[in-house]
Amino acid sequence: MKKCLSLVVIFYSLLFANCKNKTAQPHQKKMAIVVSTLNNPWFVFLAETAAAKAKALGYDAKVFDSQNNTSLESDHFENIIVSGFDAILFNSTDANGSVANVLKAKVAGIPVFCMDREINSPDAATSQILSDSYSGAVSIAKYFTQQLEKKGNYVEILGIVGDNNTWARSKGFHSVVDNYPNLKMVAQQSADFDRNKALEVMESILQAHPDIDAVFCGNDGMAMGAYQALVSAGKAQKVKVYGFDGAEDVITSISENKVAATGMQFPKVMAETAAIFADEYVKGKRDFPKKIPVAVELVTAKNINDYTAYGKK
């Protein structure tokens, strides 16, 4: 009897769900947000903002996490194409590897808008809204050389060594700093964009090079890890720490004069622009700029009051 009753309930609830779908939302448009990883607060923020903006524009939004894996990303694209999404807001796992995925969507007639990370194809994506990591690192490097008065020993902590952003930042930084022969890099190590790894790597580096003047880190998480190591070694006052991203912890630390500077990226601007473009595309607009570089701004103790985590106040 009980079984029978529950079957009836299930049946009715199915019926009810069906009715609701058909009547209430006949032509609900939807956007897919595909991000390289959700294991990093910066990308979580990018995905959340894109989803929020898409919802605000009247779309259903679904976030797909590629877990830094281009083949998983490929699966996501296939599922997205099959389930009939209207647009893809896309943060790629790999500049070259992701091109094929974007082309698949293009063939299926779904526009792709790249956020933050570039893909190496002139016309696969409808538009690319990109963070200019290289010139961001250049402006950090200029401030860096100025603060160190063009001389001293420094350490560089790299992100994941297989990642495009790691090298865009490192190359931008060295394009300036390498012009000053008295600025000497005593160690260059990777900490995989990870706070704990940066802490451990920095502790070991401090054993080998106790008398350094500055640390340049490929992201803010690592900058916080390096700073923690300097605190426990009693060197936080002497050694200047530079980060990249504009994450909450570092913004707070800059205002407390603990971290020297960071490069503020604007995930909110990028995510919202991509969502607005996608909306315009759905409404019929076809003429978009192929690339929009979003400048990375230098944040220091001097202008910290203009900024908050991941953007301007």
Binding site: N39, N40, P41, D194, R195, N196, L199, G221, M224, G225, Q228, D249
Partner: peptide, 15 residues
């Protein structure tokens, strides 16, 4: 211990 060392609990800790 990890959270205490970093003064922060990281969602991607321990991978």
């Amino acid at each position: 211990i990890v959270a205490s060392r970093l003064d922060s609990a990281q969602p991607n800790a321990g991978i």
